Amino acid sequence: MPRYEYRCRTCGTTFELRRPMAQSSAPAPCPQGHGDTVKLLSTVAVGGTATAAPAAAPASGGGGCCGGGCCG
């Protein structure tokens, strides 16, 4: 289930809620009890390294438009 970040406009508290995507825009009461909150736009960073795929071996049979044959 995705997590969404909200901020309370009354006290400035930022908090997260886990809820279904269908409920992402539903009101989210502040943990301090305030009701005036706004959903924040979150960014996601994905770490890791990319590796190049090994080069494919060239197809045998020559080239050309007919799979190696002559298209006269």
Rank of each mutant, 00 (worst) to 15 (best):
C11M: 10
E16L: 07
A57R: 12
S25H: 09
V44L: 12
G62F: 02
G35D: 13
Y6W: 11
A45I: 08
G67K: 04
P20N: 11
A50V: 13
P29I: 01
K39M: 14
S42L: 14
C65T: 03
D36W: 01
G64H: 08
C8S: 06
G69C: 04
G69L: 09
A26S: 15
G35K: 10
G72K: 13
F15H: 03
R3K: 11
S25Q: 12
G61P: 04
T37W: 01
A26K: 12
D36H: 09
C71W: 08
A52P: 01
A57Y: 03
A56M: 09
K39S: 02
S42C: 14
R18K: 09
R3N: 03
R18P: 02
T51P: 00
P58I: 02
P54Q: 05
P54S: 08
G67V: 01
G61D: 07
L17T: 00
V44E: 14
C70H: 07
S42H: 10
V46L: 12
L41P: 00
C8A: 08
A50C: 13
G68Y: 10
T51D: 14
A56V: 05
R3S: 10
R7I: 10
A56C: 09
T13P: 00
A52I: 07
M1E: 08
A53W: 03
R7C: 05
P20D: 15
M1V: 05
G69V: 00
S60F: 15
T14S: 13
T13V: 15
G33K: 09
K39A: 04
T13F: 09
R19Y: 02
K39N: 00
L17H: 06
E5N: 03
M21D: 03
L17R: 13
G35C: 08
T37A: 03
M21G: 04
R7E: 11
A22H: 14
